[in-house]
Simulated scan of single mutants.
Amino acid sequence: NKELDKTVTSIEQKAQADFKKEKSILLGIKKDAKILFQASKLQKYPIFEDKNTLDILLKLQSENQLDGFITFTFNKESYFGVYKYHPKWEIFLVRAEEFGEFYAATTEIFKRVSLVIIAMTIVCAIIGIFLMRFILRYLKIITAGIIQMTRNQKLETIDIERAPADDITFLGVAFNSLANTINNLMNIFKKFTNRDIVLKAYRDKYIKLEGTRRELTCLFSDIKSFTYMTEVLGTDIITLLNLHYTRAINAVLEEDGIIGSIIGDALLAVYGALEESQGNKSYQAIRSAYEIHRVAQTIRKKMEEIKDKILSERGFLTPKEEKVYKAVLIEVGVGIDGGLVFYGNIGSYERMTNTVIG
């Protein structure tokens, strides 16, 4: 025991002589957490209080890993060091440095370098801000325009008329070109589908095959004697149909109706599908029906005027002209019904249509 005490004292004295920092330590830790010796300028501790670290050391020792690096808490401070297991004494020899002291020199160098970097960064940032504001002065206009479009959910061109010929201006020109292209595509899209579907696609960026049961009013319209008209007019029937549909479809849209489908001479219109519509859907359908009849009447009147002009000029119509005259005297039938229907998109993701069923 005297020999052991002498050896321990010698170890502590030698270690303290080698220490260059105030909180450096050398510990001899037994498996039961008792401290055999402690070389340091700190107060003496009889027990190694970091039980988690001791458990790790015991596990490593059982796995025959007898040395290595380790971190632990001692004297309520964090330490980093190396350990080695001494099998004869059955203790763990731990040589460690407190983290703050260990990194003190590095931290000081880092602080000085950081101050230099911060000073240079501030100077460069000030210069850079003035340069960037000058170079990117029109980028603010472009950004503000894009933000406004995002809020309004509507694409518009950006006014960069007085901008210099630089990359930022070219970016604005490219955006305006893209906006015009998309707007053209949207306008084309609107001609082939209903307004509510266009708005939903623009808002959600996606169209699903889905629908809901809704209380709607439907208007059905077709042209009487259409087969006879087609046989007489041939391809000219397209011109007559377009003349009729241009006005009839406007009559539907003006009353917040949407076009369910157009099949030859037949037109299906739906009322009450638009969320923003506040009118009575049945009354809107009736108003459209009266207007569609008025449109047909206007076309008949125009054709009668043309006939009267020909008769006044030459006094007669040829048999062919008589047939054509009878064919172009458009008469329409209109029916209105309302109730619970399915309204939505049917088909496939390659080709779909918006319609009502029920």
Rank of each mutant, 00 (worst) to 15 (best):
G279H: 09
S177R: 13
R294A: 11
K2T: 13
E63W: 06
Q38T: 06
N176C: 00
I168D: 04
L42G: 03
F342E: 03
K21E: 10
L340I: 10
K21H: 15
L199W: 04
T235P: 07
T230K: 08
E275G: 05
I35W: 01
K154F: 07
L243Q: 14
L136Y: 13
K41A: 12
I25M: 01
E215M: 09
K205E: 14
F134W: 09
S40P: 06
T227L: 03
A285E: 06
L240Y: 10
V232S: 00
F72R: 06
V356D: 01
G211F: 07
E156D: 12
N52E: 13
A96K: 01
V82H: 13
G358K: 04
K6A: 08
T227N: 03
T9W: 06
H293A: 07
K190L: 13
F220G: 07
A327W: 08
P319H: 07
T235A: 08
I310K: 10
V295M: 10
T193A: 04
A15N: 11
T227R: 09
F192G: 13
K140N: 07
L4R: 15
R203P: 00
N75V: 02
A125M: 01
L185N: 14
L136D: 09
I346P: 04
V328T: 12
Y206M: 11
I122L: 13
S225V: 11
P164A: 08
D222F: 09
L178Q: 14
L57Y: 02
F220M: 01
I11W: 13
L136Q: 03
V324M: 04
I258D: 07
G172H: 02
L131W: 05
Y325V: 02
Y206P: 01
Q38N: 14
Y202C: 09
N176Y: 05
T353L: 14
I29A: 06
I160L: 15
Y325C: 03
D18H: 12
I47E: 12
K20L: 08
L93T: 02
I29E: 05
A251Q: 05
E3T: 11
V334S: 03
F192V: 15
D167L: 05
C218V: 14
L274N: 10
K190D: 08
Q284W: 00
V328W: 03
T121R: 03
L36E: 13
E12D: 01
R162E: 15
T143D: 13
I129E: 01
K34G: 12
E22Y: 11
G128N: 05
T9I: 11
T246E: 08
I129R: 02
D159I: 01
V332A: 02
I11N: 10
F74R: 01
Y138F: 15
A39V: 00
K76M: 09
L27D: 10
I35T: 02
D32M: 03
G339V: 00
T355P: 05
I346T: 15
Q148C: 07
K190A: 15
C218E: 07
G335C: 12
I263T: 08
E210S: 04
I147A: 11
D5T: 11
T71V: 08
M352Q: 11
F37P: 02
R137M: 10
L139K: 06
I336Q: 07
N345Q: 14
E98C: 05
V356H: 06
K21T: 06
I292W: 03
K190H: 11
V341Y: 00
Y245N: 01
Y271N: 01
